[in-house]
């Protein structure tokens, strides 16, 4: 008996959808309602991502790192963590999707990119969405990639010392996996069986340096073996597969020890708004990557499965655009931080 449910999520408004019962092929715990919710989130993230790029080209947002191409990996893994309810996250600078879907409003995200008063992660002392969002169980201190992995391991260790069964998910790119500290973190985690999941969003480029110059293997996940724990390669363009892999990893991490998940994704945009990726990638390569766009492909899959209609999809997109427009206006009229606050909180109070 189909039920009607509003698919409202933050900023998406109402787009009524007929929900079928759980269908075959979906992993345990995942409903079609979750799929529609995820798709809604993806569209909101994608709309925000495109908007920030446009604002940068207007000179209003100094810097942005796009997550286009990474959405399925970020939102799929996040969904597993949210459903588990006892996870903590150490994302990296490209995790816009993850940080938004974790619970920020579009306005909060926009405040972050415009460096305005009230910015949630650092009150605009830092680059967008860097600092801490403890309301949503997130810490990301710096851009020195790889440094977060060791911090994540320490956090997970402390949880265990407190008899707390929190699992920590730490995200990083293929480039960061070369940092010595990535090695040091995984090594320690393996020895001490720390409840941490190492999630590598492998888009095969570290700015311009391709994977074959970053490491001597095609199989990043295989490194886990050297640290004594399992590693898995996951199709990072498939949200359901990412959800499933993460869900199983959480169980493993909580009871047995670390897991390495290599989620293979495409980086559809340049490294940041300051990069020109045509200096090192061909247009043909980029066109092929765009064919694998996780957002449009996920939408097509939901439509093909009959879970939503094309009109539903358009309605969700329109809601997303409206939310992002409102967020843009709200953030633009928000004040800049008072200069006298520059001195605050250099030390803890």
């Amino acid at each position: 008996m189909p039920r009607k449910k509003s698919t409202g999520s933050k900023g998406s408004g109402d787009a009524e959808v007929a929900i079928a019962e759980p269908i075959e092929g979906l992993p345990e715990g995942l409903t079609t309602g979750d799929l529609v919710e995820s798709y809604t989130q993806m569209l909101l993230v994608r709309t925000m991502d495109e908007r920030i790029w446009a604002l940068n080209r207007q000179g209003k947002v100094p810097i942005a790192a796009s997550c286009q191409g990474h959405e399925a990996a970020q939102l799929g893994s996040l969904l597993a963590a949210q459903k588990d309810g006892r996870c903590f996250l150490f994302p990296y600078y490209r995790d816009l999707g993850l940080k938004m879907a974790a619970g920020l409003t579009p306005t909060q995200v926009m405040l972050s990119f415009m460096g305005k008063e009230g910015e949630p992660y650092s009150n605009a002392r830092q680059f967008p969405m860097q600092g801490a969002d403890l309301d949503h169980n997130i810490i990301q201190i710096s851009n020195v990639v790889g440094a977060g992995l060791t911090q994540a391991v320490g956090y997970a260790l402390a949880c265990r010392m407190q008899d707390d069964d929190t699992v920590v998910l730490t995200y990083f790119g293929d480039g960061a996996s070369s940092q010595g500290e990535a090695h040091e973190a995984m090594n320690f985690a393996g020895v001490h069986r720390v409840p941490v999941i190492f999630i590598c969003e492998n888009n095969h480029y570290a700015i311009s340096v391709p994977q074959h110059r970053q490491m001597a293997t095609d199989d990043l996940a295989s490194r886990a073996q050297g640290y004594g724990f399992p590693g898995f390669t996951v199709d990072g363009m498939d949200l359901i597969r990412c959800y499933e892999a993460t869900r199983e990893a959480i169980t493993h991490a909580r009871t047995q020890g670390p897991v390495l998940l290599e989620m293979q994704v495409e980086r559809l945009m340049p490294h940041t708004t300051d990069d020109d990726h045509l200096r090192y990638r061909t247009q043909e390569e980029l066109d092929a990557a765009h064919q694998r766009d996780p957002v449009s492909n996920f939408g097509a899959e939901l439509i093909a499965r009959g879970i939503i209609t094309p009109e539903n999809s358009d309605a969700i997109k329109a809601e997303a655009l409206k939310a992002v427009n409102e967020a843009t206006d709200a953030a633009e009229s928000a004040p800049l931080p008072d200069p006298s606050t520059m001195w605050d909180r250099v030390y803890s109070e």
Binding site: P62, G115, K116, E117, S122, A124, R125, Q126, F127, L336, P337, D338, P339, S340, T341, M342, W343, V346
Partner: peptide, 15 residues
Amino acid sequence: PDVPTMPFAQTLEDE
């Protein structure tokens, strides 16, 4: 100043 170098918002950077 003796403040972590250096804050991001325009007003803070100018300060």
